[in-house]
């Protein structure tokens, strides 16, 4: 075994027991605490509430149905456990012979229907809200490719964006560490803010403005991919030949991480999504810079062709 690999084994071993127990106790005692919207955390138990009005609705629905399940579980399991202790042969229980009870049966058919209606109501409202992409301020086209993401800015504030696009691939440090027998510990891969970003970091993140309704047009170039950033509150399949539209909004600046959710071949685990949300003014500035850059590139490309006609391909 190579030296760094041993170190990594020690590292994971050392972090294991005492810290693990503490962390577990912490996580369980603060189970209701909100998960970090930017990236997953160790021992995380629950869904992130996200940073979008939409993701907040989704989180509320998630918690509502969770509590409904807990409630039903308490009743059903409570009855079972009571029955298992009370009606044992070893305790001299005599078997009754009843086989139906109309009142109970009507109740446990009607009551679930009412509970379901109570859940379907908000779910329907959120779904309609979720599918309304109108009045978006920025449109970004997202294309999944084996195994990277391609982002194109289509329009912003009603104006077409001039040729700004990003190819986003797994960051090199993660890519080196992920190779079998690389000897690099996944725990050693960290962002400059100290976030463990192994397999959750890219070379060029998708830059988006905060407090802006963004329409995503999602598609794929080869096989089906899945665009999933939990902070936005949804995932959308990227399907070749189809455009899937969805909207998101990021109400807090930050670096939001997600992954391809749909199996897309051997490197499916290695095409993360990173969104860098910046204040609107900063985004505006960034976008102008990018537009100028691509204009410059166009100019210099044209200039090259004009200046060196001999370089043109010869019949």
């Amino acid at each position: 075994m190579t030296q760094p690999a041993t170190r990594s084994a020690n590292r994971s071993g050392a972090h294991c027991l005492p810290r693990t127990l503490l962390a577990l106790a912490g996580a369980l005692s603060s189970a209701a605490a909100l998960a970090n919207p930017e990236h997953p955390t160790q021992w995380q138990l629950n869904l992130t509430r996200g940073v979008s009005p939409l993701s907040h609705d989704v989180w509320d629905l998630h918690m509502a149905v969770f509590y409904v399940c807990i409630g039903i579980g308490v009743v059903v399991y409570g009855a079972m456990v009571y029955a298992m202790f009370k009606f044992r042969k070893s305790k001299g229980a005599e078997a009754a012979q009843f086989t139906h009870n109309t009142k109970a049966e009507v109740i446990w058919t009607i009551l679930p229907v009412l509970i379901l209606i109570g859940l379907a109501w908000p779910a329907t409202r959120i779904l309609v809200y979720e599918n309304n992409t109108s009045n978006s301020v920025l449109t970004v086209k997202v294309t999944g490719v084996q195994w990277k993401w391609f982002y194109e800015y289509i329009d912003y504030k009603g104006q077409p964006v001039n040729n700004v696009s990003i190819i986003s691939m797994l960051a090199t440090d993660s890519n080196d560490a992920r190779q079998m027998d690389s000897g690099i510990s996944p725990w050693s891969i960290k962002s400059k803010h100290g976030v463990d970003d192994y397999l959750l970091n890219v070379d060029h993140p998708l830059v988006l403005p905060t407090h802006t309704k963004i329409q995503f047009l999602i598609t794929a170039a080869d096989v089906i991919h899945g665009f999933w950033v939990p902070a936005l509150g949804w995932q959308a399949d990227a399907i070749p030949g189809q455009i899937h539209d969805a909207w998101g909004q990021l109400d807090k600046p930050g670096t939001y991480r997600g992954q391809c959710a749909q199996l897309c071949g051997q490197d499916h685990a290695y095409m993360p999504i990173v969104i860098k949300a910046v204040p609107r003014a900063e985004f505006q500035q960034w976008l102008v810079t990018q537009e100028n850059k691509s204009r410059m590139q166009d100019v210099s490309r044209t200039a090259q062709v004009v200046a060196a006609p001999g370089a043109a391909p010869q019949g």
């Binding site: 990236h39 997953p40 138990l45 992954q259 499916h268």
Partner: peptide, 22 residues
Amino acid sequence: HFLGLAGMPRRIPDYNVAFADW
């Protein structure tokens, strides 16, 4: 359940260290 809610996709051979414990 926890892993999924924390954001771990299915059908991956390797994952971020946040998912390590569960």
